[in-house]
């Protein structure tokens, strides 16, 4: 009985000391900076890339129509296990909102990003489906532009601190000519304690 009371008291005390879980407002996040890449780094890299891309005029179609973009390979050459979609999705959303570019999900290096593009077409000639609603042949749009890139990480020791450099490199290729019509590199450099882990 005595032991149980002590255990309950200890756990209550420990729980009282624990940092409470709370939501973070990205617009007013005064939390400490991490040596690894966090959402703020992806946001900064994407913001810098989109501003540069839009003002460059590379994605402004003289015909007034939106360009169709496909996402090619974005290589993660860092020591961290990250999903490059954290960067790509922000760029895609911003470009779509700009009214200049729309992304196709019917083409991808490893097949269609959305496999339903193909699956929906397999319904052709099926007696079970009203054929007036089934996608006709030749309706998919081919991409005009391709987005590719690489995220690089370099670590350095600076006296008793470490410096971690991240480079977000992006290219936009005109698929008609194969020429890179826009290129950008956003460096994000952090310096901190040697004890901090950057992988």
């Amino acid at each position: 009985m005595k032991k149980t009371v002590i255990a309950v008291l200890c756990s209550t005390l420990l729980a009282a000391c624990a940092t409470p879980t709370r939501y973070v407002d990205p617009a007013a996040d005064d939390g400490p900076v991490t040596m690894t890449m966090d959402y703020r780094d992806f946001e900064r890299a994407a913001d810098a890339a989109v501003q540069d891309l839009l003002t460059s005029g590379a994605v402004d179609n003289p015909s007034g129509e939106r360009y169709i973009m496909v996402v090619s390979r974005i290589t993660n050459d860092t020591m961290q296990r990250i999903d490059t979609d954290q960067l790509v999705k922000k760029i895609r959303v911003a470009l779509l909102r700009s009214g200049k570019v729309i992304t196709t999900t019917a083409v991808g290096l490893n097949g269609a990003e959305d496999a339903m593009n193909e699956k929906a077409r397999e319904l052709r000639n099926s007696d079970e489906f009203d054929q007036s609603g089934v996608q006709k042949k030749g309706t998919l749009k081919a991409p005009d532009l391709s987005l590719s890139g690489k995220i690089i990480q370099r670590n350095h020791k600076v006296e008793d601190e470490q410096q971690v450099e991240y480079y977000f490199q992006l290219s936009m290729t005109d698929l008609t000519s194969g020429l890179a019509v826009w290129e950008n590199e956003t460096p994000i450099i952090k310096r901190g304690s040697n004890d901090a882990v950057s992988w």
Partner: peptide
């Protein structure tokens, strides 16, 4: 007019 994010530079 929304941009990429809400963070500060």
């Amino acid at each position: 007019v929304p941009g990429v994010g809400e963070g500060y530079n």
